[in-house]
Design a protein around this nucleic acid. Structure first.
Lengths: 240, 240
DNA sequence: CGGACACTTGAATTACGTCAAACAATGTGG
DNA sequence: CCACATTGTTTGACGTAATTCAAGTGTCCG
């Protein structure tokens, strides 16, 4: 396995050897981070750009009433907002889910790299647009899909994103996400999520057990989710 | 009233006279658009950047089952994604709500302008980050707030955004949003939204009637919404 | 005046939440 | 290797917020 960040950006625009070298150099000093460590917290003054090279993380927000909302999952190759440094304060937190390898790229270095390599800039912008599209899909799910559809939709999203970076095997994916975490992502209670997972198992579309997702009947799953087949395709492999 | 787009960006970074002139020139050929006209549709190949100079618009998505989800409101001064042209297809549609004045800026022209005027680029990036923050707030609302809290929260957001561009008077705002539109934004049925509005009226926090929003008791409203007072403050007036 | 459209209200239904308890998996220290 | 705490999953009984269906009441506008 090479540098996941480079591989992801390469999927968005063809990068030359010098560009790859620049990205590799920029992410060289990556550090190991334990599971469940905040990389940055709501209210903090943003610093450098984070890149997740291995492991999983999530964006989240804690509400005044103590509940939590997960806003997005970060998989290997993903990074935080490109221009994060322009804001005065973070409006959400980012935490590792598993042990992870995290690189940080100084804002100035990032700007310089994007100036020198327009294709890196383009790929970064596309990545940002894809992330935004995912947020819109979450809003849509929360607003207009019932619980079983929401769960199915999230599983489709995660599975396709994972397949895109080559961490699936057959119709199978190791998902290090507890039911509590998933419930906090989908706007439902853990109890209800558990019942929905049971129902999905019963339909024969998929199973999720002990952190292991198996897509048994992809067509049925996509059908339940109301998942637009082109949805991630076109976003993950946009026209050149 | 000057150019709302310029005024908004000026709020993010101090622009010089030449930069203002460049923005004014870029938005010169604005055209009038009727209410309820799609500016661009899901699946279309993106073209130039849209800027709303007057009137209201919204981003939305239609689901396979025919329901609709509003994803964001665009007020005077707002624009669509900066790098929209990099994607192969739109993943959502944008439609005017009222009659509107819309400028389009060619991608090349936009790139050139941002190259020549780094402060314009910075202001545009901040605007983009603010929009993203708003999306995260919507996800949070949908996931973790009950209906009355959601409604109150959206009204806080819209009121503050409107105040920031100077279209409020006292504690009052003309909101050209039907209850059907609001319901499709908040993930609820129009019937239920209507009842929630009635309840909010009863609490004495606010009224929304015939397109006219009045904040009667701001403290009570913020309290109901669980609205973070700093939330838009820090995003709309970030530290220099 | 009549037709279209947005808003309002009531009654019945349902999806999901709450509370509570049991069970499984994993890890820690004695 | 066992007691035991800890954290995640599963299930049942019950309560409630929100939807659905249906029938109004404005209000605008040709």
């Amino acid at each position: 396995m090479g540098n996941r960040f480079v591989e992801k950006l390469q999927g968005y625009d063809n990068l030359g050897d010098d560009e790859i070298a620049a990205l590799v150099a920029a992410t060289e000093g990556a550090r190991n981070v334990d599971a469940r460590k905040d990389l940055i917290r709501e209210g903090d003054r943003p610093g450098p750009v984070f890149v997740i090279l291995a492991g999983w993380a999530c964006r989240y927000k804690i509400l005044p009433n103590g509940t939590r909302q997960i806003l997005a999952y970060l998989m290997p190759g993903d990074c935080c907002d490109l221009h994060i440094g322009l804001l005065g304060e973070m409006d959400h937190s980012i935490q590792t889910i598993t042990a992870a390898v995290v690189a940080t790229i100084d804002r100035r270095e990032m700007d310089a790299m994007m100036d020198r390599h327009p294709r890196i800039a383009k790929a970064m912008y596309i990545a940002q647009l894809v992330d935004e599209g995912t947020m819109r899909a979450w809003i849509t799910s929360m607003g207009r899909r019932c619980s079983i559809e929401r769960v199915a939709h999230l599983m489709c999203e995660l599975y396709l994103r994972a397949r895109n970076i080559g961490i699936t095997a057959n119709a199978h994916l190791e998902l290090p996400l507890s039911q509590l975490l998933l419930a906090d992502s989908l706007g439902m209670t853990p109890v209800h999520l558990n019942r929905v997972l049971k129902e999905l198992r019963k339909t024969g579309a998929m199973t999720l057990q002990r952190g292991s997702l198996t897509i048994i009947d992809p067509i049925a799953l996509v059908q339940i989710a109301g998942f637009d087949e082109n949805y991630l395709h076109r976003r993950l492999r946009p026209a050149a």
